[in-house]
Design a protein around this nucleic acid. Structure first.
Lengths: 221, 221
DNA sequence: ATAGACCTGCACAGAACCTTCACGAGTCGC
DNA sequence: GCGACTCGTGAAGGTTCTGTGCAGGTCTAT
């Protein structure tokens, strides 16, 4: 967490720690680069405006050292700013003021992306019956025919496919896909499940009344 | 488990212990903080309204000491309340009255987030004679044929199957399945037992007159 | 700007489910 | 056997949950 404003730095740090993350704090450009080398984080949260050298410069340097997901925090909603950031390797942007849960969501999303990439090294594609999911390419196939899934649908399927046959609650799914727990009362998950069913076959997603959904694990009982 | 209402505290504690977790109880703010320091739990279940200081304050203090996942329990479904909670480091929220299985699911989800190996607690595929119960998939089979059970029936069977052959009182069962002990005088448990019997075979649930029910433990006659 | 793809969440209807009651049958102690 | 208590049963009634269509809203690319 790189941010020169103590209040924001601490608030974000606290929140992330509360969510189970291990957080190291830095307050300026040089400090950030040093701590990056020292602690080898999985993700960097980077304010654009910093003493020493600015966020873009920090981003460039740490990316040169080792590829790592970077989430930029910017005060103004400046298009040019964002383009520069993306140019030097930032993966996502957040404009102040932001909601904490938004930040946590994006952090979770970025880390998830990395996690999945890491899993691919050992298991390139998940298969459940005649349903095949290529996480790296983000493509899904039913009986060797590709089905086009939207990003959310794909994430949803990925979650379900991680534990074929097991029931996941809507809140489980929401937390996994959206990065924060809290969609109770809405029908958002249902809507996406419906869309997913329409594309991969309604039978493949089992509804467990009062609990949630599960991916039908083919023959295995 | 921090909760000043003895009935709820005990019910939750029992349920979690039944699921294989190790639970320490506290009844007020100061006690919670003290026991947190003394026992170093992996997760904290926290009622919002507490004697001493409230749940948010407790959350703040324990988060300051050591980052830990916190699941808040709140009486009212108040958005502001939830936001405050998230601000001080709560990871998830549950509004009373809640179902026990819901609570267990969330506890499992939070622990999984911290330690993906901690799934042992919810991973049992029980077998009693030719009756097989897959808790994760929430499916039951009799002689390899699946039987569809409603949520309550399934939970009931799960309780009985946890101690095959042992007699459980209606109060026991009710407390386990419904999450609070208060069904004395009604025939609710009986009704669900009846439904369960109709589906898995009447012989499999033994009535112990004046006491309760027991799952017939297969071979042992 | 404009069109298209996508996400979100509401309102409604229908399905699934839970609870309770009343009454008859069963069980126990004596 | 007899009374007192406990269980089994069927159905009614209310509650909760899910499927679905649809209307904004956001984002992307043209």
């Amino acid at each position: 967490m790189v941010e020169d404003e103590p209040v924001i730095n601490q608030a974000v740090t606290d929140r992330l720690r509360g969510s189970g993350y291990d957080v190291v704090q830095a307050w300026d450009g040089p400090g950030a680069v040093a701590k990056f080398a020292a602690t080898a984080p999985d993700l960097v949260l980077l304010d654009v405006m910093l003493p020493g050298y600015d966020g873009h410069e920090v981003c460039r340097r740490i990316q040169a050292e080792r590829p790592v997901p970077v989430l930029m925090l910017t005060a103004r909603d400046d298009e040019a700013d964002i383009l520069v950031g993306l140019g030097v390797g930032a993966d996502d942007y957040l404009t102040k003021p932001f909601r904490m849960r938004e930040l946590v969501a994006r952090v979770a999303a970025l880390l998830r992306r990395v996690d999945r990439a890491a899993e691919l090294a050992t298991r390139p594609a998940t298969e459940v019956g005649d349903l095949r999911i290529d996480a790296a390419a983000r493509r899904a196939f039913v009986a060797d025919a590709e089905v086009h899934l939207t990003p959310t649908e794909f994430d949803l399927l990925l979650c379900l496919a991680a534990k074929p046959g097991d029931v996941l609650t809507r809140e489980n799914l929401y937390a996994e896909v959206w990065g924060w727990p809290g969609a109770s009362g809405t029908r958002t998950v249902d809507s996406h499940v419906k869309a997913l069913r329409a594309k991969i076959g309604a039978d493949r997603v089992r509804t467990v009344h009062g609990v949630g959904y599960a991916l039908e694990s083919g023959s295995v009982a």
